[in-house]
């Protein structure tokens, strides 16, 4: 749930999402669910020349499994907190595995 928890804090931030088919989409992150499906608003497709069919798309729902990268605004990430959250997650996982 770490990533879910993490992405929840990024709602209403502008992120760039790179899909596994190389399409890169910049937009406002509206919501994320536990499968890391992503709802984007005010989308902007980078390399729009390559993907003209997306030129009229204004918002979209992206299935989590097709996302390759999410590029985040650095200032919105609390790195120390994220490190701790990661430690907790690791501890949880270790606790579950046992």
């Amino acid at each position: 749930m770490l990533f879910f928890s993490f992405f929840k804090t990024l709602t209403n931030q502008t992120v760039t999402i790179e899909l596994k088919n190389d399409i890169r989409i910049r937009g406002t992150l509206k919501s994320v669910d536990q499968y890391l499906n992503i709802k984007l608003d005010d989308v902007d497709v980078l390399d729009l020349d390559k993907y003209p069919h997306l030129s009229s798309v204004k918002n979209m729902f992206i299935r989590g499994s097709v996302v390759r990268y999410v590029m985040l605004p650095r200032s919105e990430v609390d790195i120390g907190l994220l490190e701790d959250a990661t430690r907790r997650e690791a501890a949880n996982q270790a606790g579950k595995a046992r």
């Binding site: 770490l2 879910f4 928890s5 993490f6 929840k8 804090t9 209403n12 907190l81």
Partner: peptide, 17 residues
């Protein structure tokens, strides 16, 4: 808290939604 630690604390720190 363990499940959602980052969000919880982050929202407290930054006054997230």
């Amino acid at each position: 808290l363990a499940e959602d630690f980052y969000y919880q604390v982050y929202s407290q720190i930054r006054g997230a939604p």
